[in-house]
Design a protein around this nucleic acid. Structure first.
Lengths: 331, 331
DNA sequence: CGCGTTTACGTCGTTCGTAACGATA
DNA sequence: TATCGTTACGAACGACGTAAACGCG
């Protein structure tokens, strides 16, 4: 068993059991991977994949277990390399972030911009997806950190650090009756209007959905879309009133009116989620403290070391009231 | 970075920074290890060890972190090999147990004997030590499981499974006044007698010590010894009355009288402690269910999978009332 | 017939052990 | 001078890439 074999193994698994594709990704040739896989299977004495004819069809039951272990081995090997890179102040590297569209589009740009300033040699990769996909990416070690939101408790997997809190807002065209009446809307009013919101708000465990359920109301979701830009577009088109994250409203959206609905829907928290036991590159810490300035470097490191993160964090700021981003101070 | 390099690295660390000794242990030559170590350091870009002249003097700060990671990598690699060995019903292997003298001498023999019966090809290695040493051995991956006792909560590190409960007993020569009076002794009485007990009972956090402290008594420890056989010997010699674990009293100790003192000292629990995330060989599971027959195979596996073991276990038997050891039923 | 895997083969790099050298107490 | 680590060198092994063969849709 060698690290190379394990690296090839997970590459194959991560490439949908396509050895050729996996070979490209690890910058090696396809026969090389085939052979190493075969050798590994020979050494272990059982098949890691089920073959259908010549091609790989599925992962064996035992193979799944081996894959799991192999991933943590590779993650730890990467950790060792991170220790080394940090120690010699290596400025190059990658920052791989899995996150949802709203975060990527409205919350992350400033912090990523600041990072690109301090660490021009670091290349950033944004991996979009739904909450569960995002966490899966993190668990599989395909990204360095995940940024996701939840209405209540932090995600169970990984180490979650609260970045900021936020509320939903209602968005409507300027001439919409809801706007002109000047009063904050009630749940009952909203339930009568055609709504435009995220796809995720249809899920039973969405906090939007649950707020309506609790009042025994059935909102009329006229349309759902994957991202806030689409929602705004269709609100402009008169399809209905939008329900979206406050971060999604920009200065330039002058043709839309925004109504706070803090009283109707629970507050949400955006979390930075890290893999347990992971060693962060210097610039990742930098990024985290840029994105969530209330977090102290030491707190982050401490949370990573203990495998149960603190459940209570002091003073997680609201989106609108986040502290000014501290000037990067890097050699 | 290769698995071999990491294996050599921890071998060197575990051999007290003596490369020659480490080389013997891994069945390789000393120049081989020297070179691999050098290559690893070159790749990482920093020294893992501090040199004094030519010999290794200490582990670097960063080296300690790397060592930690390297150990989990090797442990996971061993896990993969365990999966493989289990799958092909490999009957050979090693069972490395770190434990205290009392367990090794009085509690473990039956279960180990049974194991040797079912798996004659498995070689058993007992690694004696004090509680903290035993747990360190486990954490460092030098043993497969640890068996230790505590008066209250299970040890914090690793996954602890309760094996059985037990009490201390008082042991005295047949003609001792304590015996002839027929009454169970009180704490006050004991505090007046010269006692012979384990070295560990001197420690401030020993449950024996705390029982006396709670009653504001200062017992007179006439002698301490590392193991129960010594204690019994000196009790026979008239040095005082013994305080030891009930398991240590054998049928053959007819010249000594045993007095229960369940009412004076708290009940103790003996735990089987496993490393988190470890994959057990089939025979290790077999051993565990032999030693602690009330534990179900599935419970053990489940406790290992979840990284927080159940705090409450149903029906942990007392030493004297342990269920009959089930007959091994192995192909 | 294209796509993907396996087999075959030659080359190159690496590891390993032996042996000699160097430093340290 | 004995012990331990480094350097040097040659042999063997192993990994990798190219090229060709094989199966499958």
């Amino acid at each position: 068993m060698t690290l190379t074999q394990l690296r090839y193994l997970v590459a194959i698994a991560d490439s949908g059991l396509n050895i050729t594709l996996a070979a490209e990704r690890v910058h090696a040739t396809q026969p090389g991977l085939s052979k190493q896989l075969k050798q590994l299977e020979d050494e272990l004495g059982f098949q890691l994949f089920i073959r259908k004819g010549k091609s790989l069809d599925a992962v064996t039951h035992a193979g799944r277990h081996v894959l799991e272990r192999a991933r943590t081995i590779l993650a730890e090997a990467a950790n060792i390399r991170s220790i080394a890179a940090n120690l010699r102040n290596e400025a190059r590297g990658e920052l791989r972030i899995a996150t949802t569209h709203t975060q990527a589009r409205f919350a992350l740009p400033v912090a990523i911009g600041a990072l690109a300033q301090s660490y021009p040699q670091v290349s950033v990769h944004l991996q979009p997806g739904r909450d569960t996909e995002v966490l899966a990416q993190l668990e599989a070690g395909r990204v360095d950190l995940a940024v996701i939101s939840s209405a209540g408790a932090p995600p169970a997997s990984g180490i979650a650090l609260p970045a900021y809190r936020w509320h939903r807002v209602i968005v409507a065209p300027q001439d919409h009756p809801l706007v002109s009446d000047g009063q904050p809307p009630s749940l009952d009013e909203l339930a009568l209007l055609p709504l435009v919101s995220y796809e995720s708000s249809l899920k039973a465990d969405s906090s939007l959905r649950r707020a309506f359920d609790a009042a025994d109301l059935r909102p009329q979701i006229a349309m759902t879309a994957g991202d806030a830009d689409l929602i705004k577009t269709y609100v402009r088109a008169g399809l209905g009133v939008g329900v979206l994250a406050e971060m999604a409203m920009l200065e330039s959206d002058t043709d839309l009116r925004t109504l706070p609905v803090d009283h109707l829907f629970p507050q949400c928290t955006t979390w930075i989620v890290l893999r347990r036991e992971s060693v962060l590159r210097e610039y990742v810490l930098e990024f985290i403290t840029q994105f969530a300035p209330h977090l102290d470097r030491r707190d982050v490191v401490r949370a990573l070391a203990s495998d149960t993160p603190p459940t209570e964090w002091s003073a997680v700021p609201h989106w609108r009231e986040r502290p000014a981003i501290p000037q990067a101070d890097v050699a």
